[in-house]
Each structure stands twice: as C-alpha cells, then as structure tokens.
Design a protein around this nucleic acid. Structure first.
Lengths: 192, 192
DNA sequence: CGATTCTTTGAAAACAGTCAATCTGTGTGG
DNA sequence: CCACACAGATTGACTGTTTTCAAAGAATCG
C-alpha cells in the first residue's frame, strides 16, 4: 500500500529510497469500509491522511440533520480537518468513506518531524497547501458567482470521476442545493 | 510605515532588530488612493502585499458586469492573488482600495529569499497560509450551508469593522446576494 | 425476490432576483 | 449657504428559481 505513496511522492519531486524509507517509518496504515468514519464531529483530528485508494468525504451535519459536504477526496489526495489538527480544537466535521478506502496516516508530530528530516517532502507538503488554498479560493469564487446549473456543470467538468462515483444526493450537498433541484437540472422539462 | 509591519511581526514571533532590517531591505512601499487598483484582471500578480493601513478588496467581474467580492482585507492582513503569484498565470481578479491605503510589497523572489534568510518569518508566513486555508474552508462551509440571513449575521459578527466601513452593496456582493436582498434582510417588513 | 437506498416527479410555498422609482445623505460649485 | 448632482440605500411589483413535502419509480444488494 505504501507503494502508492512512494509513486505519488516520486512524481512530484526527486527523492531517494532512503528518504522514502524515513517517511515510511513515520507512517501508519488504515483500511476503512464503506461508511466507516475516519473522524467524527467532536473528535480532535490527529493525523494527516493520504488516500492510497478509495473515496472519502468531509461533511458537517446541521441542526435539521442535513449533511453539507465540504469536499471529496480520492487516490493521491490528502484529507484531514486542518483546523482541528493544527489548533487542537474539536472538529465540527465528519470524515467517512464513500467507498472502501486505504489510508496512510501521519501523526501530527511525526509529520512535522518527517517534513524537517526530509526537506523535499516538507516542500511538497507546503506546495500542496498552497494549491489547496487556491482551489478553495476558486471554489468560493464559483459558489458566490455562479447559478446552480453552472456549479453543476463545472463540477462535472472538473471532477468527471466523482460525477460517476458519487451518489447524486451527495453532489447536491457539495454544491449547496437539494437533491431534487439537482435532479431537475439534469432532467430539464421538455420545452413544449 | 514599516513600523506597522514590525509591530505585526513582533506580535507573532520573536525576532531581532537585525532580522527586521533584513526584511525591510526586501520591501517596497506603495500608497493607493480610494478606488485605485493594486492588480487588474489579466495582470500577473508579482507581490505579496501587507496592508499597513486602509481597506482593500479582491473581486471579479462577470460577463454581465456584476462584481463578485472574494474578500476584504485591512490593516495587518496580507493580500495578493496567490494563484497568479505562485503559478505565474494571468489573474482573473481585481484588487483595489476601498479606502486610501498604505502597502508594503514583497516581490515574489524577494519574499522567498526573506523567508529563507529569516526562518522565523518563513514560519510566520506558513502559519498565515494555514490559517487562511482554514478560514476559506469555513467560508465554504458557511456559504453552502447557511441562509442569506445567517450569512449576513455571521459576517457582522465576524467582521464588525467591515460591516461599518464597507458600503452595503459590497457586503451583498461578498455574500453572493443582491444589494436589494440584503437591504430587505436588514429592514424586514413589519409583520402586520 | 424483498428491502433498502437513491432518484425522479408534482404542486405549492418560500425565497431571491430584476427593474424601476424614490429616498437619503454627502459633497461640490455657483 | 443653497441647489444640485451623485452615490448609496430602500421600496414596490413582478418574475423566476429553489425548497419543501409527499409520493411514486428505478436501481442496488444481500
């Protein structure tokens, strides 16, 4: 399973086998079945998690019991609740597996050590953070400036894979609309 | 004007006068009048900008000429288009001054050098990036899960200062609603 | 197959957007 | 100092979109 991670790191940077071995020594492994939690609301997030396979989601549940999906993540992506992880606060999010998933976990402190011991890895992680920031910024832009239909079109274009693997109701939740509205967008009434 | 920056850095970390002098040697200064651009759509963003005084906004203009404000920023905040700055692409945003503002600019390369030469500053900047990521994540959460009224209430609570200094139409734009809708939220029709 | 989960559809109600007109406060020039 | 212009905020009437609730139809899985 660590092979997926090695391949991922090698694709982004130049790194020796020794350095990869150091990273491996800091890693834990975890398998999750469908619907199994990685993190629950009220927990404190302890790990940076790399997804070796599968499909995960981060979401909150509001007062009315409605779920709001913040993001999806799949192979070669990282997932965690950064707010809880960095600042040690209780998480307001849940993270669970949409499909059976394999994860590589780096404990907060181990991660710090790994980033310092293997600087290219540290740089890689900082680059990811920068990219994530930009992605989030663009999502904010989209969500305040687009119609529901545009948001859906953009989603399908940007994440064609998710559009196939994720149930529609979850996509609706990600877009901030109801499942019924999404269904109607996809099946417009014949004009006449 | 650099005093504001010094005080800001000292508040966040322990740093020597020599190190602050190094940072100063990498900085440029700029004053902007009301409505003056710092960056225009189509430009490439070259600077990390620290706001010593004033009030700025980042926004886009859509096909219909409507402005969509991504964020406001004031004293002690940083502003730039990270996507354009980091990846060298043309910016899709405009940044301009809502109030007359004083800025401290760090050229991309100078910034990199400053972060390497003065590690505590590098760490400070990375911490800011982490915080910004969390703030953006929370904003995404809010925008997909709250009603227009809740968004406005949260805005006022989180940024009471902006609620006073920023014209209402701009707040509406930030929230992704029309000025008319915001006006009606604020002045609900008497029930009877 | 039978049970559960997911999606679609319908009709009504709530909500937000549009366009146009009015109102308010500010600041400028005569 | 007044009158006017201007920008920002409000209001009204109307339109269009999205939600809600309820029910019926697929699809999936054990």
């Amino acid at each position: 399973m660590f092979e997926v991670f090695k391949a991922y790191v090698r694709r982004q940077t130049t790194i020796s086998d020794e350095e990869l071995a150091i990273l491996e020594s800091h890693a834990k492994f975890k398998k999750l079945r469908k619907k199994q939690y990685l993190l629950q609301e009220g927990d404190v997030c302890r790990y940076h998690c790399f997804i070796a396979s599968g499909l995960m989601r981060t979401y909150s549940v509001d007062g009315k019991g409605n779920e709001h999906i913040i993001r999806f993540a799949t192979k070669d992506w990282w997932i965690s609740d950064r707010e809880s992880l960095l600042f040690g606060v209780l998480s307001k999010f849940n993270i669970d597996a949409i499909e059976e998933s394999e994860l590589i976990l780096f404990d907060k402190d181990e991660m710090k050590e790994a980033m310092e011991t293997v600087p290219v890895f540290g740089q890689l992680v900082t680059d990811i953070l920068n990219k994530s920031f930009v992605i989030n910024q663009n999502r904010i832009h989209e969500v305040i400036s687009s119609t529901a239909e545009e948001k859906y079109q953009n989603f399908v274009k940007r994440y064609p894979d998710f559009a196939l693997r994720v149930p529609q109701a979850m996509i609706a939740s990600y877009l901030g609309i109801t499942p019924e509205t999404l269904s109607r967008l996809r099946n417009p009434k014949p004009k006449k």
